[in-house]
Design a binder for these strands. Sequence first.
DNA 1: TACAAGCAATAGT
DNA 2: ACTATTGCTTGTA
Length: 125
Amino acid sequence: MSVTPFQQAVYDLCSQVPKGHVTTYGRIAKALDSSPRAGNPRTPRSQLREVGNALRRNPFAPRVPCHRVIANNMFIGGFQGVWDLNGATAPKKLRLLKSEGVEFDSRGIITDTRKVFDGFQVKEM
DNA sequence: TACAAGCAATAGT
DNA sequence: ACTATTGCTTGTA
């Protein structure tokens, strides 16, 4: 499958998240909203799904730090399409993030919300 | 090529 | 706490 422009934008934004930081779906959606394409009125709500969709497919599996994307409610979120801390992939995501300096509590909530990255540079298309 | 269904969520009520 | 939302991606006919 080929990569769509939307996915490129999403992955680019994901790549902008520095090591040891995380971001949220809302932030990405908002960043995308800052570089709208004419004639495409969209709302952050719809973009959330698009972002999640793109990341879930994740054609750039380990190349894109999709594990640095968490939910806006500070929940770590899912991984590889599985939204379950007891799943097979979530612990992996937790360990990955922890190795980068981002810690979560036993419920999967980030302990240091200051590590949420919010300085996306919107790339012009 | 065309159509239909689904989605790692969020905001508002 | 629950419900509604909304555009893009993916898969199949």
